[in-house]
């Protein structure tokens, strides 16, 4: 219960669709069982279609998201181009491993579309940067077990953008309902070739 990963609670999930990807998170910030805020998003954008979800210790969610904002801004200035999702994933991996013996207590998820091929890209990490490439979905946070169950039963290959939105939303909403430390609203991003749609799901507020 006092693991740094489960003090504040939170959940995040990413999914692959047909020529699109989706990433979603809950909005809760808590201290053990007490909810402090229902407005703590865990997804951050680092390019036209590069997204990072961070669950775990809230302070590290903020610190790590700020750190990558700095690193990606420097990358963009140096290279005069946007960072690609795969390159960003490797940056996340090497940055986390830099703190191998005093890690950030976060479980990151990357989602995006490859700028060259338009192929969907998702992956997850452990807190010291080991990458988990996936063809279907990635889950993280205190509701990860519930999310695995929901995704395994709802996800199928070749979902279009609208179907993917429905699938990821239902997966997240129903997973966090069975986790006391997650929920209280959600953000859902649907990433298509020339369009990113962000939706706010109010969710159960209890």
């Amino acid at each position: 219960m006092s693991s740094p990963f489960s003090i504040n609670g939170g959940a995040c999930v990413a999914m692959v669709g047909k020529d699109c990807v989706a990433i979603a998170c809950d909005l809760r910030l808590g201290l053990q069982a007490l909810t402090v805020s229902n407005n703590f998003p865990k997804i951050f954008q680092y390019g036209d279609n590069v997204f990072l979800g961070l669950t775990g210790l809230a302070t590290d969610v903020s610190t790590v998201s700020d750190l990558f904002r700095y690193k990606v801004n420097m990358y963009r200035l140096r290279e005069e181009r946007q960072i690609a999702p795969r390159t960003f994933a490797n940056l996340v991996s090497s940055s986390l491993y830099e703190k191998r013996f005093g890690p950030w207590f976060v479980s990151p998820v990357v989602a995006g579309l490859d700028p060259k091929t338009g192929q969907p890209f998702i992956c997850g990490f452990d807190s010291i940067g080991c990458i988990d490439f996936a063809k279907d979905f990635i889950v993280s946070g205190t509701a990860s077990e519930q999310l695995f169950g929901m995704c395994e039963s709802l996800w199928e290959p070749g979902l279009d953008a609208d179907q993917l939105f429905e699938t990821i939303s239902q997966s997240l909403l129903n997973a966090v309902d069975r986790d006391a430390l997650s929920g209280w609203g959600a953000h859902v991003y649907i990433i298509e070739k020339d369009k990113v749609t962000k939706r706010l799901l109010k969710g159960r507020q209890d």
């Binding site: 910030l29 402090v36 805020s37 407005n39 703590f40 210790l57 302070t59 903020s62 610190t63």
Partner: peptide
């Protein structure tokens, strides 16, 4: 702004 000793920051 709510801020605890862990530096968790939340606008509330």
């Amino acid at each position: 702004y709510w801020l605890d000793y862990l530096a968790s920051l939340a606008p509330v």
